[in-house]
């Protein structure tokens, strides 16, 4: 399955498109340098583009629940997906599923 590669450097309005707290949590879970936040676009796949491994995703799940409450259950979201769904899960899809009403941009 082909996926379009994100081009964060050219993405219009980047940074405003993803909830800033979500960006911060992703940077924290990824133990990434601050400039890595530029890669966090709605189109970025957690696996193929941001290259988060299972342990980092487990950390992100904990951080999301701490910040947004029990409803922001990334573990449950991912548990319901098959391999293709997991491979194609994007930041935008995560935001829509877990943070309804908080989506910015």
């Amino acid at each position: 399955m082909e996926h379009p590669r994100p081009s964060p450097a050219q993405a219009p309005g980047r940074g405003a498109e993803v909830h800033p707290d979500l960006v911060s949590l992703l940077v924290a879970a990824a133990e990434a340098p601050p400039e890595w936040a530029a890669l966090v676009t709605p189109q970025a796949r957690l696996d193929g583009d941001l290259m988060l491994d299972e342990c980092e995703l487990a950390t992100l799940a904990v951080l999301l629940r701490e910040r947004f409450g029990a409803g922001a259950d990334l573990a449950a979201l991912r548990a319901g997906l098959d391999l293709a769904g997991l491979e194609s899960l994007t930041v935008g899809a995560l935001e829509r599923a877990l943070l309804p009403g908080r989506v910015s941009g």
Binding site: E54, A58, A75, R78, A79, G80, L81, D82, L83, G85, L86
Partner: peptide, 12 residues
């Protein structure tokens, strides 16, 4: 079972 959090992957 390191992937036990992903039951559909284990099923695959």
């Amino acid at each position: 079972r390191p992937l036990r959090a992903l039951p559909q992957v284990e099923a695959w």
